[in-house]
Write a protein that binds this DNA or RNA. Structure first.
Lengths: 224, 224
DNA sequence: CCAAAAGTGTTACGATTACACCCATGT
DNA sequence: ACATGGGTGTAATCGTAACACTTTTGG
């Protein structure tokens, strides 16, 4: 015999338990030859004196991805960013005020294209080196960052989703340094070039980057 | 100037929008030398005449994983199953009655250890061959199954998480067949054995499986 | 002109693939 | 006894990793 009340609770109806949902976004950027993550201090709420990921509440008329777009725009002004869902976090006590479940996303942006401005409700905003993250982040955001970084690493193995992190035209040493930053290891120059060229995704622009010794060629992603 | 109302809505407080949450579970099993998935027909609710994944509503005092355990136990009696989170689904109209977000999990079980019984609230329950899934599943469960199967395939590449799908002692041809079913391709017998033995995770029990021609050796996962 | 960084090929190694016969068992 | 499936090794190929010098440019 199964308890009838436990079965009733399985079913979604108008009396079902409901819960607030947020999205938190791990935005990675590549600044000063280092992979960074975007953190904010918020003007209101519980964790006003803690750095945390941009994040905010889901509304009734939007998907989680919509919500991520909205939230990031409201807190940073960033628009037309590509997101990938990472996972959901549901510890009962993860939010100090009430039960809140969060779904995390990651995004890759070029900081040069997206200057940091203080939107209202945001007290501070800054890029943090991945190994210099404050150790008193709000909520479970340290764990979310760890998971998102791992996700990014794993995605790098297969595809080359790094486009968003670099300017339109970039040099191969810049791309290699980015890979090394994401993966946290050093790569052989010649083998790296071989691999990238084999992928057949870059186009030599014919231009050289000036102001850099050696005069490296500038590449861009192929059309089509 | 940012609109103040959009910012207010970001913050989680006592007036925040709340929404029902469910977990749906893709339970894979290995029956009659085929990889299968467990589907149910429910006695109540919107989709009574559709097959669907076991799933149910999150309560206030449980994590998503807790919920998955509870739901699967209530609908099948299965206990002590290992779950992995796959992803969240949040289309606004994915549930016909009201807004419901679901987080999917996958699990691997041995059907022999978990005979199918009809628990109350369940009208039918059965293992379905992955390529013979009814085409009118409830909700977005077809998509969830597709994603979960992909997740399983990808996990197989690295680790050997297949333990739960086989009895304690099994033969190498059985293991190979399982791999072939999950991956959907044929593997070379000798190369497969080489790979598995290199992993150094199996222990030869010294016994032979009887009732099978050729007299195959039985293996078990190593301790420690 | 010197220092610093970019660019370029080849070889060695390990991993993966392809492939065919004998042996053990159940019927 | 025979048919069915289990078990075994080697050679060829491919992908990956190791490695040093020349060229270009800025200072």
């Amino acid at each position: 015999m199964t308890k009838p009340e436990s079965l009733a609770s399985l079913q979604v109806d108008h009396n079902s338990y409901e819960c607030s949902i947020t999205t938190d976004i791990a935005v990675f950027g590549y600044v000063e030859n280092r992979l960074k993550i975007l953190l904010t201090k918020r003007a209101v709420g519980k964790y006003t004196d803690h750095w945390m990921l941009p994040g905010g509440a889901l509304q009734s008329n939007e998907t989680l991805k919509d919500c991520a777009h909205k939230v990031l725009f409201a807190l940073t002004g960033f628009q037309e960013i590509h997101f990938e869902q990472v996972r959901a976090y549901s510890d009962v006590d993860r939010h100090p005020m009430k039960r809140v479940i969060t779904v995390s996303f990651y995004a890759l942006v070029q900081p040069e294209k997206h200057p940091l401005i203080l939107k209202s409700g945001v007290e501070e905003i800054a890029w943090f080196d991945l190994d210099k993250i404050p150790n008193n982040l709000g909520f479970d955001h340290a764990e979310i960052i760890k998971d998102s970084h791992l996700f990014l690493k794993n995605n790098l193995k297969d595809r080359l989703i790094v486009g968003e992190l670099l300017p339109e035209k970039f040099t191969l040493p810049e791309l290699q340094n980015l890979y090394e930053n994401i993966l946290g290891l050093e790569l052989d120059k010649r083998n790296f070039r071989k691999r990238i060229f084999q992928m057949d995704i870059l186009e030599n622009t014919g231009e050289k980057k000036i102001g850099v010794k050696g005069g490296p060629m500038l590449y861009a992603y192929k059309e089509a």
